[in-house]
Nucleic acid binder design. Structure first.
Length: 955
RNA sequence: GCCGGGGUGGCGGAAUUGGUAUACGCGGCGGAUUCAAAACCCGCUCCUUACGGUUGUGGGUUCAAGUCCCACCCCCGGCACCA
């Protein structure tokens, strides 16, 4: 340490004692003299030891908390523990310790560690979610949701983690694996508790628009909710005989405009109507076998192997509601039972998946929308007659070298494929063969396939003085041999033949959209058209724009327009011990009853066997509790049984921000008048991993409570900032197995709490989720900086404050202030460093400067600032000081440096008054030799002068 | 594949939103000090000998582009057989 070093341990203790003595951080929530400001971070899980990530989360948010107080706000900055959860239970299984003991001991240790940060947390509001005084109200809120139909018990296909021996919410499954332990999840059909978040899908979506969040956070939620607009259409399905039953099969589609092209129907293998239809099908065994095979596969297997599979319901057909035609019915696992209606109308011409299936099962493809192109170089003209023509585009490929036959047109700067009209009596393939022969002389070619469907191109035919619509079919041919006949003189005069490689064709960018589209399709191997266009093969709708006709087609087909959502109901039961018991019991008939409020908290039993499977497969350890069974019998009677499942810990964290306002209330979950005053949370800082889980759940929960008139606002959070991650020194994510975990205690011990938090603040912007590697050198450097600040206070203070220093201080106050407000601590610190350097240059540091510097330092290095504050002989705490107001007049500059450019290139700079005019600037600029020389040669053509910024001369 | 965000020195990152690109810091190099070392202090540190060039690549708009427009490449995050 340097000779001017300070004893960080001593000053940390002294400062923290002083704050406690002055009781600076107990927020009086009823104080009406100041504006309330609710600053929240995600309450930590008591995993045991404080991680550097905790510092990043709490100490940096504290910078902002302190600044808000200095701005005169009444700041609520609380902390608590998200203390239910799996690790406690796993420790119990592994080491035989009681989860409760394990959790409470961890919290004790962590409290001490957190206090060492010196963060301005209000511990008087602390909550612990596993404490009965807290989960009493988690349970009570559950009963409210149940009473209003927002919690229900239902049978559903759910995700099951075989390692954790519990069901999981959809949000807790990543790529088919348990989010927590990485084990591949299974699917089970179980009766479980759900919260009906789907009922709130639309509001969760639309209310996002009004939230002051970054777009990426909103977009992630939008994607998770997954709204699609479309229609519900009903196909009537029935067997071959007249007296066979007819079943309505509703389908959801986003493209009802293509219903005339629906050539078959597909049901998910789990679709409930299969049970009925199978009775009239001629192949029930094959259908059952396919259902069984699908059930064996995990969702991951299904989507990994995207090769389409399926089985027809032989003999069953369904009536297309638009065409009234009978179409075959299949079951296939590319249709998901849990999305939409579990059935789709298949339109192979306009959907890639349907096309793939249709190709495999030889089903008809019927095009009903054709893309529309307008030749912009020669568009149709008003008032001219319109003539329709059928045309072909022929692509001829030479299989020997992969090149394609193209035409360079002599009268136009175009390169195209062979193009021509279909004569009467010809089909399109014959026409293409003939055109290729006539235009190129090649006659030995074989037809490969048609490329997509028909498109239409509109243009004005100059030589005929008419508008034309060309309906074009593109086709691919292979050259058999290179035998070529001589071209007629007329043909030869029109164009020149060239063979181009695919690269050449792509890079030359074939001019007409129509040809370019054909080429792109061939390259991508896509034969479906999923875009918009003009309807045909669609009875009365022919010729209309598909989007425009959408609503009319839905009506014609007897359907209704609906919105569909991807989000599923939130599965909240867990077959684990360490969570809030679901406050429900079952009577001897198995009916659900809520545990009455006067029996809450419905205590978690303690006499349980944690061993996995001890209670029987798929059952929570609670089932092994004798006490719980006796309790239920005693209160409700003989034959009554308890619910054994506990609540997902995300339920606990969905309302904790409300409890902070009234943490000890035994009569209500929170206080109405305090909620009115403090909600919503002003700023919420947390990790991006919670975007589609906690953040979405809490928004739902709060909205549900709002609808029950239990909370005053429909959104719980105002601003939201997702912070990044601190990586190990090797740049990899910290993990015990990699051995790159940084223990903050050691670093704090060595360099002090202020240096650690300032290093973390300096590493990158806190208002965006970037990931930064931990670097011990950086912490050391930050300590050196603090030593330099400390040394500054050894200097004499007699000098008067100069105008220049006054201005530097004012600029720093403004910049550091706005940067802290925006969570841009990194640039706030760099400004502070620059200011310190300037003060170091002074022979003496005026008192006023010393005082101001400490106020600027206080949010960032609270202990050192406090220490130096008392050393200056100031009263109270530096943290009670006001953030200085900036005298804007001080910021007014009396001279500016203006860059002088010639043709936009920097040639020098001049110094002048900010309000100097162009003439003065020009005069001064002549003192720069290169500029003078340029002006001598001739006057500038143009002079651009931006006051205080730039002078640019153009010659 | 679709939707976001991004690409600036050896590294973390700045850049008043179109006006001096590389602030601040790390690392590196040199000096000073010391018997020596650490610490502290001072200087240098995008490329180029220079002219000049440089913000992923190529084009464009503009007096002026890291910033705006078009095309492409790469990285990160989210969603994904979602009809």
């Amino acid at each position: 340490m340097s000779r001017d070093s300070f004893d960080h341990k001593a000053i940390e203790k002294k400062a923290q004692d002083r704050w406690a003595e002055l009781d600076l951080y107990t927020t009086d929530l009823t104080d009406d003299t100041k504006d309330p400001y609710y600053l929240l971070f995600e309450f930590p899980y008591p995993s045991g030891d404080l991680h550097i990530g905790h510092w990043y989360a709490f100490a940096l948010t504290d910078i902002f908390a302190r600044k808000q107080r200095m701005d005169g706000k009444n700041v609520l900055f609380p902390i608590g523990f998200d203390a239910f959860g799996l690790p406690a239970e796993n420790a119990a299984i592994k080491n035989g310790v009681d989860p409760k003991k394990w959790t409470y001991e961890n919290m004790d240790r962590m409290r001490t560690q957190i206090r060492s940060m010196g963060a301005s947390l209000d511990w008087s509001k602390e909550i612990v979610s596993c404490d009965p005084s807290y989960y009493k109200w988690t349970q009570w809120l559950f009963t409210k949701l149940f009473e209003h139909g927002l919690a229900e018990r239902k049978n559903a296909l759910v995700k099951w983690c075989p390692k954790d021996q519990t069901v999981l919410a959809n949000e807790q499954v990543n790529d088919g694996h348990c989010e927590r332990c990485g084990t591949e999840v299974e699917e089970k059909n179980l009766t479980q508790w759900f919260f009906k978040i789907t009922q709130y899908a639309e509001r969760l979506l639309t209310d996002l628009d009004g939230l002051p969040w970054r777009e990426d956070i909103k977009d992630a939620q939008r994607a998770w909710i997954g709204e699609s607009e479309g229609a519900k259409l009903t196909f009537m399905a029935h067997g071959p005989e007249k007296d066979d039953t007819t079943q309505p099969i509703p389908v959801f589609t986003t493209r009802p405009d293509t219903v005339f092209g629906a050539t078959y129907l597909v049901l998910a293998p789990e679709h409930e109507m299969i049970e009925v239809l199978i009775q009239d099908a001629s192949n029930p065994d094959a259908v059952r076998e396919y259902q069984r095979a699908t059930a064996r596969k995990t969702e991951r297997d299904r989507s990994e192997n995207k090769e389409k599979t399926g089985v027809p319901l032989e003999g069953i057909t369904a009536t297309n509601p638009a065409t009234k035609e009978e179409v075959p019915v299949y079951i296939a696992d590319y249709v998901l039972n849990s999305y939409g209606t579990g059935a789709v109308m298949a339109v192979p011409a306009h959907d890639e998946r349907d096309f793939e299936f249709a190709t495999k099962f030889n089903l008809p493809v019927k095009q009903v929308v054709r893309p529309r192109f307008v030749d912009e170089s020669n568009p149709p003209r008003e008032g001219k007659e319109t003539v329709e023509r059928d045309m072909i585009i022929g692509l001829v490929r030479n299989p020997k070298n992969g090149k394609f036959l193209c035409l360079n047109w002599k009268e136009q700067p175009w390169t195209t494929f062979v193009v021509g009209g279909i004569e009467t009596g010809e089909d399109s393939i014959e026409a293409a063969v003939r055109e290729i022969h006539e235009e190129t002389g090649y006659r030995n070619i074989t037809f490969v396939r048609k490329l997509g469907g028909i498109s239409q191109t509109e243009y004005f035919a100059t030589h005929k003085d008419e508008n034309r619509i060309a309906y074009t079919q593109a086709m691919l041919f292979d050259l058999v041999d290179e035998e070529q006949e001589a071209l007629s003189p007329e043909e030869a005069a029109k164009h020149e033949l060239v063979w181009l490689s695919p690269q050449e064709i792509t890079s030359r960018k074939i001019q007409h959209a129509e040809f370019a589209t054909v080429w792109q399709r061939l390259q991508n191997g896509i034969d479906t058209y999923v875009g918009d266009g003009i309807l045909f093969n669609s009875d009365g709708f022919d010729g209309r724009d598909n989007r425009e006709a959408m609503a009319d087609i839905v009506e014609f087909a007897g359907g209704e327009r609906v919105k569909n959502y991807r989000i599923r109901d939130w599965l909240v039961s867990r077959q684990r011990y360490w969570g809030a018991p679901i406050p429900v019991v079952y009577d001897p008939e198995g009916n659900v009853h809520l545990v009455p409020a006067d029996h809450l908290p419905w205590l978690l039993p303690e006499d349980v066997d944690f061993t996995p499977g001890a209670a029987g497969a798929g059952k929570s350890p609670l089932a092994t509790s004798k006490e719980l069974h006796e309790r239920v019998t005693r209160i409700f009677g003989e034959g009554w049984v308890p619910e054994y499942d506990t609540l997902d810990t995300f339920v606990d964290s969905s309302w904790y921000y409300l409890r902070y306002l009234d943490p000890k209330d035994d009569h209500d979950f929170s206080d109405q008048s305090l909620m009115k005053k403090w909600m919503p949370v002003d700023r919420y800082s947390g990790g991006s991993e919670h975007t589609t889980m906690h953040l979405l759940y809490a928004r739902f929960f709060n909205k549900a409570l709002y609808d029950l008139a239990l909370v005053p606002t429909s959104e719980p959070f105002g601003e939201r900032f997702n912070r990044g991650l601190i990586l190990g020194p090797d740049g990899a994510k910290m993990s015990k197995s990699k051995g790159n975990v940084v223990n903050p205690d050691g670093v704090v011990e060595k360099f002090g709490a202020d240096a650690v938090r300032m290093y973390l603040a300096f590493i990158g912007p806190y208002n965006e989720p970037g990931n930064y590697p931990w670097n011990l050198d950086g912490t050391f450097a930050m300590r050196k900086f603090l030593d330099r600040v400390n040394a500054l206070y050894e200097k004499k203070t007699d000098a008067e404050l100069s105008d220049e220093t006054t201005k530097h201080l004012a600029l720093a106050i403004k910049k550091i202030g706005t940067d802290i407000d925006r969570f841009k601590f990194n640039t706030a610190i760099s400004t502070l460093m620059t200011l310190v350097r300037e003060l170091e240059q002074l022979p003496q540091v005026p008192m006023q400067a010393k005082r101001t510097l400490l106020i600027l330092l206080a949010p960032l290095a609270p202990h050192l600032a406090e220490h130096l504050w008392s050393k200056l002989g100031e009263e109270g705490s530096v943290h009670q000081a006001q953030w200085p107001a900036v005298d804007e007049s001080l910021l007014a500059v009396n001279e500016v440096t203006v860059t002088v450019q010639i043709q936009g290139k920097r040639r020098g700079e001049i110094t002048l008054r900010p309000d100097s005019n162009e003439d003065e600037a020009l005069m001064l600029a002549k003192s720069i030799p290169t500029v003078a020389k340029a002006i001598e040669a001739g006057p500038p053509k143009r002079v651009i002068y931006v006051q205080g910024r730039i002078l640019n001369l153009v010659f």
